[in-house]
């Protein structure tokens, strides 16, 4: 599933326009502790978090994650969005909790 397909299926709102929409989503990882994510998230994963500061883009870019979903409508800093576009990392927002987002991802066929 591409990031674009994931957005459609889960009703995610992109803060980074069309940037990185064709990326393939390979899996998912949930976490708000950056070092933990750094150690465990895998290339291609979509990362679900409530962290919104610029450093999440560095983590996603270094790990070559497919995208970031900010759960529960947490407000994302302008600087983060700018950096995300520069690094071609889609930043998507959901009104739902990490749990409900995961449920949506599983229903969409991820992790099966």
């Amino acid at each position: 599933m591409t990031v674009k397909e994931m957005c459609e299926k889960l009703g995610l709102r992109s803060l980074t326009g069309e940037c990185g929409m064709d990326r393939e989503v390979g899996g998912a990882y949930i976490g708000d502790l950056l070092s933990w994510v750094m150690a465990h998230a895998q290339r291609g994963d979509v990362w679900i978090t409530i962290q919104t500061h610029t450093n999440i883009i560095a983590v996603a870019s270094l790990l070559e994650l497919s995208s970031i979903i900010i759960s529960e409508d947490a407000e994302v800093e302008e600087e983060t969005i700018k950096k995300a576009v520069d690094e071609n990392i889609p930043v998507l927002v959901s009104t739902q909790s990490a749990f409900m987002i995961s449920k949506g991802l599983i229903n969409a066929g991820l992790g099966n």
Partner: peptide, 15 residues
């Protein structure tokens, strides 16, 4: 609060 300081930095490096 920013998600740093999990106490995983040095162990991650070593790994």
């Amino acid at each position: 609060e920013m998600g740093f300081g999990a106490g995983m930095g040095l162990p991650n490096m070593k790994k």
